[in-house]
Design a protein around this nucleic acid. Sequence first.
DNA 1: GTCTATAGGTGGATAGAC
DNA 2: GTCTATCCACCTATAGAC
Lengths: 209, 209
Amino acid sequence: MARPPSNGNTATRILDVAERLVQTRGFNAFSYADIAAALKVTKASLHYHFPTKADLGLQLIERYERNFLKVLGQIDGANLGDAEKLRRYVDIYSGVLRANRMCLCGMLAAEFATLPKSSQSALRHFFDANERWLAAVLDHGRADGAFQFNGASACVAQSVVATLEGALMLARSYGDAARFETGATRLLADLQAGRARVGLSRATGAVNG
Amino acid sequence: MARPPSNGNTATRILDVAERLVQTRGFNAFSYADIAAALKVTKASLHYHFPTKADLGLQLIERYERNFLKVLGQIDGANLGDAEKLRRYVDIYSGVLRANRMCLCGMLAAEFATLPKSSQSALRHFFDANERWLAAVLDHGRADGAFQFNGASACVAQSVVATLEGALMLARSYGDAARFETGATRLLADLQAGRARVGLSRATGAVNG
DNA sequence: GTCTATAGGTGGATAGAC
DNA sequence: GTCTATCCACCTATAGAC
């Protein structure tokens, strides 16, 4: 989900910088002045494209969700097994971490109580969409024998998102990507427990999915 | 971990209010003015007790860790099985959520890049201490047969913390405590997989540990 | 220890010229 | 669409009286 330095129009470049600032610092810890400095334009110019910070926040989330869903669509179109689909989903988060960022919506979830109402709704919409996609993969995979888990796939999907967001957040605080990978790999292994735990032996390294 | 309205000295009452504000809004989204209004004192008075916001942040984290470790000590002293100890650990987070708060250190982990250096170190210290305690419980429980997992207990401990922090963060955004509980219960069940999964049957409700 | 008063800076946002 | 100039509210922090 890391974005190359955009050559697009001004609104797009503003969103690119703002996105990076939210993902690294949070919505409450950056200002129009930060964006203006990065783009070498004035603050007034930014307000022409995004009159209020609430407007900017909403459009950030909506664009982030569109991009996210586009990637999920690519995964769906790649003719992969369900375990591999899930691994690809996890890889999205790995990429975010490699860019030294927090997930945009994970960051905003922490700041939830201080966000404009419009951002709050958009945020839930993002997570709902993620969990719907995950639940479908989980259901299909369970029917197929690729996954084993108890209970509703929707609940497992919630757990998956929560685990990845938490692991991302903690790994970033430690500047330690391995911290994320071990957690993510364990998550995948637990879902494929029927296969990965055949021996139930002690393993010293990470469990491969 | 929720604290009753303190009747202690001023410094303590300042910390109580600041703690609540960080847990609900974040370190970057509250000000000395907010605390002053809540305690009906002036901002200048606050600066007498905590000269800079960095001082306040550091003391918040250090006190939070002391209280946390005190509770963990109580769990250790209660003569419980390891599964029950882990359940009690999860219950700490449940209590935070019931108070409509985020974990202090989870919130700060999201804001990590913007924090004073002193807070950043204290934050890692908090998580390190948590994970040491968890790893000890996990190791003991694995040797005892209460838990089954592959790999180093330290890695599992990291996963546990990440999952709980993430679930807390997401549940708070949805104002939905059940969202946290299903994730937490699933986490516990996975660690006790050897017992909980004897039948490997489809269950519709939550899996009890 | 708490107050009044204030400094010096930055926040989001707007009016109006070009 | 971008600029200059400006507004007012708020921020953290300090000086000095009581």
